[in-house]
Nucleic acid binder design. Sequence first.
DNA 1: CTTATTATTGAGAGCGCTCTCATCCTTTTT
DNA 2: AAAAAGGATGAGAGCGCTCTCAATAATAAG
Lengths: 373, 373
Amino acid sequence: MMIVIHESALTEEPLLINFFPSDETQFMPELTLEDIAKLVGVHRSTVSRVVNGASNVSPEVRKRVLKVINDTGYHPNAAARSLATQRSWMIGLVLPHSVSSFFTDPYFPQLTQGIAYGCNSHDFTLSLFLVGNKEDEAKITPRISRRGMLDGLLIQTGSPEDRLVQRLAKSSIPSVVLGRPGSPEGITYIDVDNVQAAFNATRHLLDIGYRRIATITGSHDSTVTADRLEGYTKALSTAGISVDEALISEGAFTEISGYNAMHKLIEARPQAVFAASDSMAVGAMRAVQEAGLCIPEDIAFIGFDDVPLATLTKIQLSTIRQPILKFGIKAVELLIDIIENGQKPARRIIMDTELIIRDSCGARNVRVNQDGM
Amino acid sequence: MMIVIHESALTEEPLLINFFPSDETQFMPELTLEDIAKLVGVHRSTVSRVVNGASNVSPEVRKRVLKVINDTGYHPNAAARSLATQRSWMIGLVLPHSVSSFFTDPYFPQLTQGIAYGCNSHDFTLSLFLVGNKEDEAKITPRISRRGMLDGLLIQTGSPEDRLVQRLAKSSIPSVVLGRPGSPEGITYIDVDNVQAAFNATRHLLDIGYRRIATITGSHDSTVTADRLEGYTKALSTAGISVDEALISEGAFTEISGYNAMHKLIEARPQAVFAASDSMAVGAMRAVQEAGLCIPEDIAFIGFDDVPLATLTKIQLSTIRQPILKFGIKAVELLIDIIENGQKPARRIIMDTELIIRDSCGARNVRVNQDGM
DNA sequence: CTTATTATTGAGAGCGCTCTCATCCTTTTT
DNA sequence: AAAAAGGATGAGAGCGCTCTCAATAATAAG
């Protein structure tokens, strides 16, 4: 019979009640190298050689050692090995507090996944430092800084002035920043070419024939926002169109912020909108539809990110696809290279994006002027 | 001047080009306890006492030690400490291969977040073992099993027979399974009350007055699916309604699977549908709308999970909300308790859910029969 | 048959920290 | 004033592994 505790989600403390009467405690051997050596009748060093695949062990001895290891289920102690080798085979992923919307936006989960896969294939273990608030930051920082725990660090940029990012990136621990840091001098980082991507998106809208093109930007305190805005203005300038402040509205990467930003934009009557994230694009499209306007006939849209949601809306969203998974894997590989060959000189990798044409931009049916200006 | 490498997302190998000429290598001291002791003029033991906050150090000496620690930026070596104490203050989160849809579904990111917060507040470090495929599994398993690296394990259930889950949960390392494992005997786990939640959802549809209630289940090889189906059938039976196989359709937790499942269901003309996940509910609603039917007038819906998407659809989705964040935090606390007080006897925690009424179930306007049968 | 060469194994010194014990110096007690 | 108690510090033995060096055994070379 089991005793089950139903704990209300609202209750403070969970009651923990045992549902098995006390039992013999399983006592695993917890063998050491020395123990294995004794069992085989050789020296610790020899067993170590076998475990680490060194070549200078006679086949006969190797076989005997492997048998005992298999029979006993021996696993080397990670802490001892780390202490002796000064390597932990572990890297940390730091997501600072300034990066909000971690797990509401599908971007970070996918990035994490890419990083995890990168770690797997190179036999590294990933530890996750998710900074929830300022208090967390104070507790986490020393843990990250402790030597002997992490071989290297992947640090996600948040706001450009994030102190944690700056401090960690400039510390002596091997590190790679994900995204363009506020002050990139001397910092190794990997980023997507946001300027070019935004340029391509805007350019595409121009090519279709739109002239009054608005943009909904991300929150102002991030380099991503700055870069995407730069691409947008650059495309307009290149086309000889002057940038109209009334056509630029700030959002915060979320659906609702896109909805609100569109409300401010709607009276300026743009023909098309480039939104710096899909979530914002979806919110903006909702606002447009509520106003009784049609997409893409009245207002066309291009988003950014290519999240699953982009294909779930009534009018499928044209957008910029980032190679997120590859990005994560690449970041790991860059970091490993740094761990093995040194941090200096600083490097950077910029990855290209892809423009995905769906229904919301009107390219499929409108095609006003394919060659653009 | 910087040299920037634009790497196409399609290219195989990234070219890494330095953009800073070689520079003096920053050489951080990498001080040890012994070094600090020498600098202060005391013994290693005393410094250790200060670092670990032991009481038996004179205020004067403590002050001097702290000053040197501060000035030098000393951090104790994690590996050495782990080796000496046999504790790593690190726990692992294992997401086995059988749990697909990790990062497409917002559930896991949120869970991870809860777990990360739990770790933060208890000064534990979280490492993530994301098993991508069978190959990964073989590489990851020994890493997890290595002693000295992890103090405990949080293991997400996937399919009930997942060998990794079974093996790890029954190993000697302290562990907590997230979700009901296939064979729960002797395994400590934490779960949400899926049976009760599904019962409540179905019961609510009955209370409104619907009689032909269909369900879209999750993939058949999971305990979650079994539990939610059980709640559904239990509610029908309690109301004296026999279960009609034609009203049960299997999905796979994804939007498209819900869409497809609904297509099979639609000819059976249910008055209401209980979908075992919001994603499936959204897919199913799409199918219903495409068929020219109205929600909730023609077919009412209740989902499960309360993902953000649930409020982004035209007709806001009624659903079951899980206390995901709390769930993660609780799981960490349970694991820590086990680490400190032993695994046996096995325990389980079941958390309650909440029914969120929005528009899709029709309760707000229909209210056929509030008191149910 | 002696010497040089190589393959295999053993010895032992760390890696940087914790923790128990012993020692020394103050206080307090009788 | 002598003895007991207590507080602060030093000593040193591990924790389990790696890695260099020395020793031995086996083989090849002169």
